[in-house]
Design a protein around this nucleic acid. Structure first.
Lengths: 345, 345
DNA sequence: GGCGTGCGCGAGAGCGCTCTCACCAGTGTG
DNA sequence: CACACTGGTGAGAGCGCTCTCGCGCACGCC
């Protein structure tokens, strides 16, 4: 398709400006140590010819790509079910763009794909990687570690391997959960239940831990396991009502789960929040605002998480920031959450 | 970080296998015309050394990148508000992966970014582009056309420029809308209203056209304009009830809008579907299944759209398919939709 | 046995860039 | 006035790969 006209090379620009390739290269890469009038001449030639550097040739010698891989491990279908992923991606994209880096997206699907991703990363196509891998038993983190690619994880990797040098960005799931449960307690609720997320993910475990931090002696029957889905929420809520009909508050592991719980409560004739107060997690707009009643929930700044991941990675690559000495090695960050009060609690 | 061990080159593999670079290259690229025992020897050397071809060096000479850009034009916040985007991306990713192509994601934010994207595409970093640009007045398509990069659009580009050679993949928005409205009519409804989407997007226009196809002499007061959001749906529904209190069915431009409409109907004491039947569009899982009552809606196969876009592009690049003569130039595709019956109509 | 034929392989050029190094002013110093 | 010294510039090597070309060899034909 569209036979591209042969693109001008450094050589051509040099000829037109009447200087050497080296000088053009210097100008293109910042222009330090070149006399102003020459810089001018070269710039002009570049514009006239519409010269754009050939990235492949450049990478070949510099061994830099100005590209970062974003790896999303399937079957994180959850990642697709909510805008989480898109928002995070947007944050990442903004930050990378600001530092002239490209975003190479790697979506994995099943086990074979892990090998593919490992190969790709080891292949040195990118300078670093941002990895989303929420499951505890995911082999990806190890694989990546072995590939020797600078990496920042999205969410605390629940991972038994070597922890040294692992950098991640996460929300304060535990703290957010505590806030939610405390809020319910502050409302005078005493039979506060928790519907967990999928416990093979660190975020679910952390939220459960936060619940336990406050409900130190919680009746174990007040904890029902679910999987971050509305259907799971319904099932868990029924269980809960079965075991403890007098439950007066529910902290659900996320908004989707809460929406399922809400529906069961309505079906069984409970008024929310009068009879049972409900709090979710995520502040996932289309869900939290559309439930009946609108959901009180714990918000996390998802886009900021993405941006921060990218920033940490670039810093680790000695880019995107004036190198702050040798000590600039990034470390993990946990972002705060905020309770958003709506009508359900 | 992690000083990468110097990666083995073709040269090294050649030395170890006792053959020339050329032969190694042949083996790595398919191994045609090399005797079996040599192929064997080379493969062994490759494995032992953990050789991975340097893509930059390869691109430098082949002028191929095996990479495709996916451009998502902001402020398509809508794209982020629903799983649409993620699903499409997944479809694209699957197809690209199957043909060993990388996915470079370009998210744009505001006008400056258009220039950036244009520069990037013109810079010949990728072999082709998949572009999502839903707004009628978006300058991006023209820009890309000028960059001379093979492109497939997601959704019919509403675009006044030169149409020749424009390839897109879209859902049958118009046909889906017709099905929905016919279904309502089949239910015996006669006062069928339509809440439109944002009419600066072709999908919204097409759905409106579909509605009009069936409701040829529709009372104009039965059409209310909204913007694909729940809030817009609420507003439009109130308008509608105000103008025509006897409305007995609503076809909303998408599920989000329908959810807003549903809420207003409930508030005003209408029973759904008994008093007013409601149909949405998209079959966006977390919304359509969670509304009360669950939403009847028009489903589009979003992932397939993505996959198809990628397939068309690769075919246009003479890849991913045995070249079917010169006639293999791809043309646009419109995918069918299906009506999903739930409780609301 | 001489000759054409075709296949398998190696030699070598060159893709477009960066970067080191040597060179050539021009300036300041003894 | 000879000397080092500096800062701007060009020459040239080389990054790791692909691909064309030509050579050598085995085969089949006359």
């Amino acid at each position: 398709m569209t036979d591209t006209a042969p693109r001008p090379t450094l050589e051509a620009v040099a000829a037109r400006a009447g200087v050497s390739r080296a000088t053009v290269s210097r100008v293109v890469n910042g222009g330090d140590g070149v006399r102003d009038n020459l810089v001018e001449r070269v710039r002009k030639a570049v514009d006239e010819l519409g010269y754009v550097p050939n990235q492949a040739a450049r990478s070949l010698v510099t061994r830099r790509h100005d590209a970062v891989a974003v790896v999303v491990a399937e079957p994180e279908t959850r990642v697709f079910a909510d805008p989480f992923f898109a928002l995070q991606l947007r944050g990442i994209s903004k930050e990378l763009t600001a530092h002239d880096n490209q975003l190479v997206l790697l979506l994995t699907e099943g086990r074979d794909d892990h090998a593919r991703v490992g190969r790709y990363l080891a292949g040195g196509h990118v300078d670093g990687a941002l990895v989303f891998s929420l499951h505890l038993d995911d082999p990806l983190p190890e694989l990546i570690q072995r590939a020797g690619v600078p990496t920042v994880f999205g969410g605390r990797p629940g991972w038994s391997g070597d922890r040294r040098g692992v950098v991640y960005v996460d929300s304060d799931n535990r703290g957010g959960a505590r806030d939610a449960v405390r809020h319910l307690a502050g409302l005078g609720r005493t039979r506060i239940a928790h519907i967990t997320g999928a416990l093979d993910q660190t975020s679910a475990v952390d939220r459960l831990d936060g619940y336990r931090d406050v409900m130190v002696d919680a009746d174990p029957r007040l904890i029902a396991e679910a999987d971050f889905t509305p259907a799971g929420g319904e099932r868990a809520m029924r269980e809960l009502l079965d075991r403890c009909p007098d439950v007066d508050a529910v902290f659900a592991a996320n908004d989707l789960t809460a929406s399922g719980a809400l529906r069961v409560l309505r079906e069984t004739g409970r008024r929310v929040p009068d009879d049972v107060a409900v709090i979710g997690f995520d502040d996932m707009q289309p869900v939290a605002e559309q439930t009946d009643p609108p959901l009180t929930t714990v918000r996390q700044d998802i886009e900021e998480m993405g941006r921060l991941m990218a920033r940490l990675l670039l810093r680790g690559l000695d880019r995107g920031a004036p190198r702050e000495g040798v000590a600039g090695r990034p470390s993990s960050v946990v972002l705060p959450t905020t309770l958003v009060r709506r009508a359900s609690a």
